[in-house]
Write a protein that binds this DNA or RNA. Structure first.
Length: 1176
RNA sequence: GCCCGGAUGGCGGAAUUGGUAGACGCACAGGACUCAAAAUCCUGCGAUCGCAAGGUCAUGAGAGUUCGAUUCUCUCUCCGGGCACCA
């Protein structure tokens, strides 16, 4: 028994004084940045679950260091948070005090584990030196127009008079008092994360995240493509816009529905319906979130009395309101197509609204042609070998290979020939063959059919031995028997009320791996089948039937009966005017084109992701460094629009903006500049100087060449203008455009950057990520040069695009909110008497008049501060950047250091942070990247997740259950190394695992055995010990690399067992082994290293290398099987050739006996492993 | 409801691309040391039949593919996680 209490402390102190774990900026060694989520230091202290990931990454950090890497493995405190705040409310103690105590506790606990954190970079998100930069970065969002104030619903507890976070209002009940929670409208700061939605999805391809993490992110962002369509309200000049992913069903609209909160509701409701509507709206408002989102609930709703006009056919449809339409998604209004949407169908059924079919089950003529051509190709393919194919046959096979590329397997159904299987195998596909067809043919024969004249169809329908085979089937061969199976499958599926399954589309199968066949369609029926009754059974009416060219098949168009539910699959358009006969995908495209042409709709992409609510009415958070100034807000401004080239300020989005600004009582100057076709920038600048009176209240809005004009113009102004917004601004004419030479001639490209900056109070760039005209990098360069705010928008597909109008409007609008100057940061949290929000739900800061009342940083007049604070996710969105330069007071981190360390190489954290923290911090980093402040677009190269450590009873550890295990107890009783190794040994790192007291003592026993190894030192190692040592060196290194820590620990135990079995180990080998073990059990190993006379600290030694020759044994145990059953094991020499292994196996006495003279049919030899003898 | 995981001895868990199922640890049993106990060391430890040699059955259930399946395919059951009226 070693004295852990003594050695743990001893070595922790030595490490600290030696500074062995300090990461070195700019070291020439390869850098590795390992990151664990920084904890919230709660009053309860650490529990045994926390250190699991710390220890795991510590092992990696120590190994990588020993392998010659410059490792950054930092730790800090995410200390703003509700528990501390609630504690302050209850006790009146300042949260900063409690936080300091909690951090001390946490830090002591973490340090007692001997983790190799670089404590010199410790951070604390509540430290003003840290949150100064959280505030500064927030201001960048603000300046770029990404932070805005908007009304949102918050959870409000009327009893506690406090706004609640979602996690405090679970189940619609206040966590504090248990009373019901209401929704209340509140103005909040929001950050426009939705502007980054698309990049947050697409950039996931560039990083290595756990697949489920990636998937969860994608689903959370929830991108869907469709169209926005305008419906005019009858007898009114009002109109509503709906979002739909199925514009192809526009002719099937039988009513439209608004969310009860929709602003139009009050405006269009008729007098007769007013009472019913307002009652419904009020009833919905009373409902809790839970009640509203219960999908199983029966539909409710009310008719508004108004009618809308379907833009496709000018049909008059009633306008309803219903809470199944969500106000926050799309436009808050839907066009209801009950025939093809389940929710609309339910609603229509309930309220007796008409149901109009516009999509039929079937195949479009175009698809028919495609398939016919594929079938010809397939016919040719059947005649020839794949290598001989040309023309249609070649096309078929190429297409097939293209479609199934990447599949793990192709399930071959139909009359599979070995030829095909071989060909596909040769092309890298794993082919699984089924004998379904052969057996089916036998079955048919058993019914008395001649083999060459089988009654495939009828038999298939009565043959039920293969039910289920196709439910997820992949059809490779659509020949006759294959089709018989297809029918079988269709039949099965119809029986179950679903759709199948099999795809004849393009005549080839779908991928097994991911696509399954849910989305596939089937269309073709064997002629002899009673198609009508088949389809009738699952609720379809047959519309048309036509024969295939060869007369063997029927093409069917069928329509779901309106009382049989909604037909939501893709199909062919019917009753849809110009869409008739088109497949769903073509119908969508055509409809969108038509809508755009008629100017009643447009293609549209919508996301589930909402903008980030960035304020809370609480004390314990970063104060928002903004000031509201009424006089700034009330200023009447003069907007000067500058375009300048080939087009005018009176086209595209300027007129729209003009109307917006004039409706707000601002003046707008939108002059045609001279020579717009052959522009000369200097001439245009002079024109503006001559014709416009610029004032301090001027806002310059410039676009395209106008941005160049503006950059030339600004230094020449005699006044400092209020703001300049450059849309699609550029520094250099790098775009390829017919006008480029003219532009190049028109201007010299040297700008007076200081002059521009002096001439405008604010400068903002709106850049276009799609690079349709100017590369994004040019924008970034420009933003950096001017130190201007930049907002990157997407998607903008054209030079001018209505999509960005709202973004422009935001940028050019002056709200009266002003940012504090950098010199005023940090804006520190003032001392308050009471930590409780005020009675009307404002943060306690609102009650401190010295804090609230201040002067406007812009005009010097009286102004008020924002009293909301930032949410918990703010500080954690960029903490990984601060570790890189934790003490920098001039910047949040130096660019050079960021360039050296970023991105994080490995980031471990809980699955619970996948959708919020991970998404927010990726977004934050992306914005900072756009501004040129950080070097990578993605912050984390790799993201992994650990499983929770459960209590011994298998439930989650929680204070209330009293089943929490405190690591201090384990460290005190068994030592830090025992805890470390047990946390890793407990099970696979990514899986949850229950804590076990007994398991801990097993690890302690192992460490005691290790500590006794010096007593067993001998002159020379036995062969066995030496070989096991090198195998251990290899396996442990590999296991750490692939984060399989539990097996690495097991291998350590195996090695020590082998030393005990052998009775001794040499000093050299033991020293080698101690280096290997030191990353798991550093304290014990330092002690041993010292005892063995090792130089310096074992933590500073290099990683031991294994010897290849010692890893491979000279002999191995050859397993001899007969028909797959183990019958003998023989020692054989490593590397023995196959035929010798075979001879050796066949000559074994046991095998001879088992074979009893029977001649083997086949003998399979697996090198280095086994021989399998196949006998009949 | 949908989407992801997962299911292996009494327990936690091993099993690199299909190739000896149960590594390692816990618990348990036996032995050595001891007056005794603890600690330590050694041995055994899936079920079943057998004195034994050895056989048979076993990786949630049922099928399939394969010379050979814990691993691949299909169906079903149960457990865990995520999303949940997203038009």
């Amino acid at each position: 028994m070693y004295n852990h209490l003594e050695i743990d402390k001893k070595w922790q102190n030595r490490w600290e004084s030696a500074g062995v774990f300090k990461a070195e900026d700019y070291s020439v060694k390869p850098k590795k940045y390992l990151l664990v989520e920084f904890p919230f230091p709660s009053g309860a202290g650490l529990h045994v679950g926390h250190p699991r990931s710390y220890v795991a990454l510590d092992v990696m950090a120590r190994m990588y260091r020993a392998q010659g890497n410059n490792v950054l493995y930092p730790m800090g405190w995410d200390a703003f948070g509700l528990p501390t705040e609630n504690y302050a409310i209850k006790t009146g103690r300042p949260p900063a005090e409690a936080t300091a105590e909690n951090i001390a506790t946490f830090k002591g606990q973490i340090q007692s584990l001997g983790l190799s954190f670089d404590w010199s970079r410790e951070i604390n998100s509540t430290d003003p030196g840290y949150y100064k930069w959280t505030q500064w970065q927030f201001l960048q969002f603000f300046k770029a127009g990404l932070a805005y104030k908007a009304k949102t619903m918050i959870n409000w507890c009327p009893k506690c008079k406090i706004g609640l976070a979602n996690e405090e209002a679970q189940g619609g009940v206040c966590e504090r008092c248990g009373g019901p929670v209401e929704k209340r409208e509140k103005e909040q700061w929001m950050i426009g994360i939705t502007k980054y939605a698309d990049r947050l999805i697409s950039d996931l391809e560039t990083v290595d995240y756990l697949p489920r993490v990636r998937k969860q992110q994608e689903e959370w962002i929830g991108k869907s493509e469709g169209a926005e369509i305008e419906f005019k309200i009858e007898g009114s000049d009002k109109s509503m816009r709906v979002f739909t992913t199925r514009p192809d069903t526009l002719f099937g609209v039988t009513y439209v529905t608004l969310a009860p909160e929709h602003t139009l509701v009050g405006e269009i409701t008729t007098a007769e319906q007013r009472a019913a509507v307002s009652e419904y709206v009020a009833a919905v408002a009373r409902k809790t979130e839970m009640e509203r989102t219960d999908a199983t609930r029966e539909k409710t709703g009310v008719f508004t009395g108004a009618y809308a006009m379907n833009p496709a056919n000018n049909e008059r449809v009633p306008v309803w309101i219903s809470d199944y339409v969500l106000a926050g998604y799309g436009t808050g209004a839907v066009m209801a197509v009950p025939a093809h949407d389940e929710r609309d169908w339910e609603f229509a059924k309930k309220f007796g609204l008409p149901i109009k079919n516009v999509v039929a089950f079937g195949m479009s003529p175009a698809e028919k042609d495609t398939i016919a051509s594929y079938e010809k190709g397939f016919a040719e393919y059947i005649e020839k070998t794949p290598e001989q194919l040309t023309g249609v046959g070649k096309k078929w096979i190429d297409d097939f290979l293209e479609r199934v590329r990447g599949s793990k397997a192709v399930l071959e159904i139909g009359t599979a020939s070995g030829r095909d299987a071989n060909y596909f195998s040769a092309n890298g596909l794993e082919v699984i063959r089924t004998d379904a067809v052969e057996k089916f043919v036998e079955y048919q024969k058993s019914l008395g059919h001649a083999a060459e004249k089988l009654n495939i169809l009828d038999d298939a329908l009565s043959y039920d031995a293969y039910d289920g085979v196709f439910a997820n089937g992949v059809l490779l061969h659509a020949n006759e028997s294959g089709c018989a199976y297809a029918i079988r499958a269709i039949n099965n599926s119809l029986k179950n009320g679903g759709f199948v399954a099999l795809s004849f589309k393009n005549g080839v199968g779908e991928k097994i791996e991911s696509e399954k066949v849910g989305g596939a369609r089937y269309f073709k029926f064997w002629k002899q089948n009673d198609v009508s009754s088949l389809l009738n059974k699952s609720g379809f009416d047959v519309l048309t039937v036509s024969e295939s060219e060869d007369g063997k098949w029927l093409y069917v168009i069928a329509q779901k009966k309106t009382d049989a539910g909604a037909f939501v699959e893709e199909g062919v358009a019917v009753n849809s005017d110009f869409l008739n006969g088109l497949a769903t995908s073509e119908a969508k495209t055509n409809m969108i084109a038509w809508l755009e042409e008629q100017k009643v709709g447009a293609r549209k992409i919508t996301y589930k992701l909402r903008d980030w609510v960035f304020s809370r009415q609480r004390y314990w958070g970063e104060p928002i460094p903004l000031v509201h100034c009424d006089s700034c807000a009330g200023e009447k401004l003069q907007y000067v629009f500058i375009h300048g080239f080939k087009g005018s300020v009176n086209t595209d989005f300027f007129p729209w903006l003009k109307i917006q600004m004039e409706s707000r009582d601002h003046s707008v100057v939108a002059l045609e500049l001279p020579n717009a076709d052959e522009p000369n920038v200097e001439e245009q600048v002079q024109f503006l100087l001559d014709n416009v009176t610029f004032t301090p209240n001027t806002v310059i809005v410039a676009h395209s060449l106008g941005t160049v004009v503006a950059q030339k113009l600004l230094p020449k102004l005699l006044v400092r203008v209020r703001k300049t917004v450059l849309i699609d601004g550029f520094m250099e004419p790098v775009f390829v455009d017919h006008s480029r030479p003219k532009v190049e001639q028109a201007v010299d490209w040297n700008f007076d950057i200081a002059g521009v900056n002096n001439a405008t109070q604010e400068l903002v760039l709106l850049a276009d990520e799609t690079e349709s005209v100017f590369p994004l990098e040019q924008h970034r360069k420009m933003a950096r040069a001017y130190k201007a705010a930049i907002q990157v928008v997407k998607p903008v597909e054209e030079h001018f695009c209505a999509d960005i109008e709202p973004a422009i409007l935001d940028l050019v609008t002056i709200t009266g909110w002003n940012a504090l100057p950098d010199s005023a940061l940090p804006l520190t949290l003032p001392q308050v008497e009471k930590y409780e929000p005020t009675d009307n739900g404002e943060s306690p800061l609102a009650s401190i008049s010295e804090f609230v009342n201040t002067t406007c940083p812009r005009c010097g007049g009286a102004a008020t501060r924002e009293t909301d604070t930032m949410p918990n996710w703010a500080g954690s969105s960029w903490y990984f950047l601060r570790y890189i330069d934790a003490h920098n007071d001039a910047e949040f981190a130096a660019a050079e250091k960021l360039k050296y360390w970023m991105p994080v190489d490995l980031y471990n954290g809980g699955m619970e942070h996948t959708t919020l923290h991970l998404l927010y911090s990726r977004f934050w980093n992306k914005f900072m990247f756009d501004c040129g402040f950080v070097p990578t677009s993605e912050p984390y190269a790799r993201r992994v997740s650990h499983g929770l450590i459960m209590a011994e009873d298998g439930t989650k550890m929680s204070k209330s259950k009293g089943n929490v295990v405190n690591p201090d107890e384990i460290v005190a009783a068994q030592g830090a190394d025992t805890l470390r190794m047990y946390e890793l040994f407990i099970g696979p790192f990514s899986e949850p695992a229950p804590w076990s007291e007994n398991g801990v003592s097993g690890v302690r026993r192992f460490l005691d055995r290790v500590m006794r190894l010096p007593e067993m030192i001998v002159e020379a190692d036995s062969e066995e010990v030496l070989r096991t040592l090198h195998k251990t060196l290899k396996k442990v290194s590999e296991d750490i690399d692939r984060m399989s820590f539990n097996t690495a620990v097991a291998q350590h135990m195996t090695f020590v067992n082998s030393v005990y079995a052998a009775g001794g180990i040499s000093r050299e080998s033991l020293k080698t082994y101690v280096r290997l073990l030191s990353v798991f059990a550093p304290h014990v190993c330092e002690e041993l290293w010292e005892a063995l006379g090792g130089e310096g600290l074992v933590s500073a030694q290099s990683w031991p290398q294994f010897n290849h020759n010692l890893v491979i044994d000279e002999t191995f145990e050859l397993v001899v099987q007969i028909n797959g059953k183990v019958r003998d094991r023989i020692i054989a020499a490593t590397g023995m050739p196959d035929d010798e292994l075979k001879a050796l196996a066949l000559s074994s006495p046991k095998i001879v006996e088992w074979l009893a003279g029977v001649q083997p049919e086949k003998v399979i030899v697996v090198k280095g492993k086994l021989v399998n003898i196949v006998i009949p």
